[in-house]
């Protein structure tokens, strides 16, 4: 049986100064799937994203995107251009640019130095930005400096920037941090609506949120740099090993 994997991570190891951050990690993601990754602090979630996006190079193992595109050895920007978008844990927006400019800079399009020297914005791009502004509900603040936004709004803006890139694979690190319950819920709905069109990996701590977006999809639990278990939300929640390392302490 040949499954259409969008992301294949096999036998990946990464050691920092003797500390094994990722050890023999295997992770497979189907095209169009929305996967939630949970795990206690230090489980290697951020390093996992770093490895996929090219921020860190693995010591050994295989990371492939789509059918057979090897991601190892590629730069951050090369991986991004292939269609992998990442949202950071702490909102990372261009604080001195307006909300509009933040989105404009993230739009899909040529990214070479000389292309940007003479690039003009097209009407289609304007429409796209307006759409995005509506999605992230920042129409009223389109001309605000992004640095002046509230924490939750910055999170939204970054999600908007991610959408502007129109990536095949979205890696989303704790999107709900700093949001109100209502905002969190809307974020969840947005992510669910994106699934199918895009493939999404979400790292999250907030179990209500996890339950909301995981629905009947699979959940991956990371522990000490490798996969502890995978399965449906209820099954994972009932797993004694998981209870011990993660949920048990959480409750």
């Amino acid at each position: 049986m040949k499954t259409d994997w969008i992301l294949t991570v096999e036998g990946v190891n990464k050691t920092f100064d003797g500390f094994k951050a990722i050890s023999d990690l295997n992770f497979y993601l189907k095209r169009g799937e929305l996967r939630v990754v949970i795990g206690p602090n230090g489980a290697g979630k951020s390093t996992f994203f770093d490895l996929i996006t090219g921020r860190t190079k693995p010591d050994s193992g295989k990371i492939e995107f789509g059918k057979d595109t090897d991601l190892i050895g590629l730069n951050e920007y090369q991986i991004n251009r292939l269609g992998v978008g990442r949202k950071f844990q702490t909102p990372s927006v261009y604080t001195d640019h307006t909300v509009w400019e933040n989105l404009q800079l993230s739009l899909k399009g040529p990214r070479g130095v000389f292309a940007t020297l003479f690039q003009r914005i097209t009407p289609a791009q304007r429409t796209r930005i307006d759409e995005l502004l509506e999605v992230i509900r920042l129409q009223a603040k389109r001309d605000w400096r992004a640095g002046a936004l509230a924490h939750g709004e910055k999170q939204w803006l970054e999600i908007g920037m991610l959408l502007a890139q129109d990536p095949e694979l979205l890696l989303v690190d704790e999107p709900a941090a700093g949001m109100t319950d209502d905002e969190t819920h809307r974020t969840g709905e947005l992510l669910i609506s994106l699934a199918g069109k895009h493939s999404i990996v979400v790292v999250e701590h907030d179990m209500t949120f996890v339950k909301q977006i995981a629905r009947d999809g699979e959940l991956t639990v990371l522990h000490q740099g490798s996969v502890l278990c995978e399965g449906r939300f209820d099954a994972v929640q009932a797993n004694p090993k998981v209870r011990e390392v993660y949920l048990g302490r959480g409750k």
Partner: peptide, 26 residues
């Protein structure tokens, strides 16, 4: 220009620019 926007974006958050697919080094 667009270039100038990216310039300032690099100044404020180089990693974001890099992860948005721009080769900041260039």
């Amino acid at each position: 220009s667009r270039f100038g926007q990216i310039q300032r974006a690099i100044r404020d958050s180089e990693n974001r620019v890099l992860f948005s697919g721009y080769a900041t080094a260039h």
